[in-house]
Amino acid sequence: MYLHLGQNEIVPDHRIIGIFDLDKCSYEKRTREYLTRAEKDGVVLDVSGDLPKSFVVCDHPYHPQIVYLSQLNTSTLKNRAESEKLVL
């Protein structure tokens, strides 16, 4: 199955490590450090097209991890992921 993150970005669900609320998580120092480091490493992809509300951390075959910034909130992404699994 796949999860649509917004814009034209779709990722395989088996690659998803976590879906995080950007507003809630950005208060934590370690999260800010993680996102800053990911940005410096060039593994952050902004697929929001607008103000991002969440970020999705994914496993990647060529990098340790890829971080997608999405304009969708975490509950929307969660609902999409769950509805895709129900289709089976």
Rank of each mutant, 00 (worst) to 15 (best):
K40C: 00
Y34Q: 09
R32M: 03
I10M: 14
H60G: 08
T76R: 02
S54D: 10
E28G: 04
C25K: 03
L3T: 07
R80A: 08
V57H: 01
G6I: 05
L22K: 07
G6Y: 01
M1W: 09
E28L: 05
S70Y: 02
D41C: 11
A38W: 05
G42H: 01
V44A: 12
Y68L: 06
L69W: 01
H14V: 15
R32F: 03
P61V: 09
H60L: 11
K78S: 08
R37F: 10
L51I: 11
T31Y: 13
T74I: 02
V56D: 02
V87R: 12
P12Q: 09
M1T: 10
T31A: 13
D59K: 14
T76P: 06
R15W: 12
R32G: 04
F55D: 05
D46C: 11
H63P: 00
K24C: 05
K29G: 13
Y68K: 06
L5Y: 10
K29C: 14
I10Y: 10
T31W: 06
V57S: 07
N79P: 00
S75A: 13
D21T: 06
E84V: 15
D21N: 09
L77I: 14
S54M: 11
V11W: 09
T76W: 02
L77T: 14
V11S: 08
T74R: 00
V43S: 03
T36E: 15
M1V: 12
S70L: 07
L5S: 11
R32T: 03
E9D: 08
C58P: 01
N73W: 02
K24F: 13
P64A: 15
D21A: 05
E82W: 03
D23H: 09
I19C: 02
P61D: 10
K29P: 12
L5E: 04
V57F: 01
E39L: 10
G6F: 08
Y2I: 06
L88V: 12
V44L: 13
V56W: 01
K40M: 11
D59V: 08
Q65W: 01
G18I: 08
N8P: 03
P61W: 03
N73G: 02
E33T: 15
G49V: 05
S48V: 11
Y68G: 05
Y68V: 07
I10F: 13
K29V: 15
M1L: 12
